[in-house]
Amino acid sequence: MAHPHRHGHRHDREIETLEEFDRVAAGGSLVGWRLQALDLTDRTAALMAADTTAAVFLGCPMAPDAAAKVRADGALVFPPVPDLPFAPYRGLLYTPDELFAGLDAEHGYAATPDARTYAWFQRTMRDGDVFASMLRSVHDDAISDALDERLAGVPVVGVMGGHAMARGTDAYAGAARLGRSLARAGLTVATGGGPGAMEAANLGAYAAPHPDGMLDEALLLLGKEPSYVPSVGAWARAAFDVRDRWPGGGDSIGVPTWFYGHEPPNAFAGHIAKYFANATREDGLLARCTAGVVYLPGAAGTVQEIFDNATPNYYGSRGEPTPMVLVNRTHWTEHLPAWPLLRALAEGRSMASRIALVDTVEEAPEALLRLAAAG
């Protein structure tokens, strides 16, 4: 479907699927439309019949006759880049099935689009190739555009926490129950999209429509492959086994990065916004958490996320401060004492009524809703 005007951008002239193309082209005009990463090699007749004046084709394969015709109309054509493991102009977020395609083939995870894209990233980063840098930037901008479309008007709550949290632990189970509670409260759960606490929260959101016992069984099955080390393949297959056994799970968002490419994305986020630039990913994830953020115990990355979010809340640069709930008093006051600093920053400011420290994950949803009501 065509998209309405959202987030200050014009999405109502974008075509991102072949179904959209067929519907619009049937009217005889593609004037001014932007077409993203569509394989149009079987749509020659439609292209020849439609007026494509001022249209923009971003990475759309076409038959030579069709390409010549649209250029003659005055369309702008950005041809596909050969031999790339990703589509820089893509119009939609990734899915787990897309990123892990080929997981069960001969070469396992190494042959998946996710692993091949990481390998390309590593190689081109070492080369310092300006063309590759441009492709990464175009891709990340397209992903941000797709993420805005997906989350328009949706209350989003972030769950941040460390990647080292292993399946089969009480902490992992608690993070999963947290994700389930937030999803059942009508919120869209968004995480950093990786393993550990991030996977657990996405798993909880996936479990939300199912009976309570489903999550308990899933946790037992996943506990047999506690970590993505040493085998990403075995770790990911265990997740897909859970999805196959209980299809129709709830949706959530994962926002991982190939910058930390040694950490695979998790398979429980229904939509995945994967970036090359970690700074773009971090800021974009937190900015979209309009309903607040819950911080589970983590290390340097989670501490960074706390203060990346505290800064706009402190200055009011994104409008009213959003709720911030830190979970585990001992961790955030003794092991990594972020809470005293956060509380000191908030003193005398409007964000003071939007921060909370709780002892357990079970307390986090109620604290989040209380802080939201305080605004």
Rank of each mutant, 00 (worst) to 15 (best):
M1A: 10
A2R: 15
H7I: 11
H9C: 09
R10E: 13
R10S: 12
R13Q: 12
E16K: 14
E16W: 12
L18K: 12
E20R: 10
G28V: 10
G32H: 08
A37K: 00
R43V: 10
T44L: 06
M48D: 04
T53V: 14
T53L: 14
A55T: 08
A55V: 05
V70P: 01
A72S: 13
L76K: 15
L76M: 14
F78H: 15
P80V: 02
L84F: 00
A87L: 15
R90K: 13
L92G: 05
Y94V: 06
P96N: 02
D97M: 07
A101D: 08
G102I: 03
G102K: 06
L103F: 03
E106R: 14
H107C: 07
A110V: 14
D114T: 12
A115F: 02
A115V: 08
W120N: 06
M125A: 12
G128T: 01
D129H: 02
S133T: 14
L135S: 01
S144V: 13
S144W: 13
A146G: 01
L151A: 06
G158D: 07
V159E: 03
V159I: 11
M160I: 05
G161W: 04
A166M: 13
R167L: 00
R167Q: 05
R167A: 06
Y172Q: 06
A173Y: 02
A176D: 06
L178T: 04
L182S: 03
A185Y: 03
L187P: 07
T188D: 00
V189K: 02
G196F: 02
A197Q: 02
N202G: 05
G204Q: 04
H210E: 03
D212W: 00
L215F: 09
L219S: 10
L221Q: 14
L222Q: 00
G223Q: 01
Y228N: 08
Y228F: 15
P230Q: 00
P230S: 02
V232Q: 09
G233V: 10
A236G: 04
A238H: 04
A239D: 03
A239Y: 05
F240M: 04
V242D: 02
G248C: 05
D251F: 09
I253Q: 04
T257G: 04
G270H: 00
H271V: 08
R281I: 08
A287W: 08
A291C: 05
L296Y: 13
P297R: 01
G298L: 03
Q304N: 12
Q304H: 12
N309S: 15
A310L: 11
A310Y: 07
T311G: 11
N313R: 11
Y314D: 13
Y315W: 14
G319A: 09
P321D: 01
T322I: 15
V327F: 05
H331I: 11
H331M: 10
H331E: 09
W332E: 00
T333C: 13
W339N: 01
W339S: 02
W339C: 01
G348R: 11
S350M: 11
R354F: 11
L369D: 13
L371D: 05
